[in-house]
């Protein structure tokens, strides 16, 4: 019985030219579905301070442009870019690792706002006042 298909390796994609719009999403991440960003909560906010001087892929540039003027969550980036959450996570993780983007706002292993009483009180007051 043949084994499961091998996961695509980044090398598989080298030299392969895709027509814009016809790329399978995970081709943009070099076939990776995991990366430093894969644990980012979907509500984590991304901010970018400016356009980096280095060359970035079209998709990373799009993230940079979207998150330059405003905080945007992984989920919002995914919606605006019409790309799966998993792909955006990997791309954002790369940008953060390279020092081009920052993550804010959401739960970390050390702090979860959703289980912090003062935060919940503020949420309750806020919703009640809507």
């Amino acid at each position: 019985m043949p084994g499961p298909p091998r996961d695509p390796q980044p090398d598989d994609l080298e030299g392969v030219v895709y027509e814009s719009g016809s790329i399978r999403p995970y081709a943009l991440t070099g076939g990776r579905t995991r990366g430093s960003g894969d644990l980012l909560p979907i509500e984590a906010l991304v901010s970018v301070l400016g356009r980096p001087a280095v060359q970035l892929s079209t998709e990373k540039l799009r993230i940079v442009d979207l998150a330059m003027a405003q905080y945007l969550s992984i989920a919002e980036l995914s919606a605006h870019m019409h790309m799966p959450v998993g792909v955006v996570r990997v791309l954002v993780g790369d940008l953060v690792e390279a020092g081009h983007a920052r993550i804010h706002g959401a739960a970390t292993p050390a702090y979860n706002p959703a289980t912090t009483l003062s935060v919940l009180e503020s949420v309750l007051d806020g919703i009640s006042a809507l």
């Binding site: 509500e43 984590a44 901010s47 804010h104 959703a114 935060v119």
Partner: peptide, 8 residues
Amino acid sequence: ETAPTTVK
């Protein structure tokens, strides 16, 4: 200046 805290 300060990023919002996000909850869901």
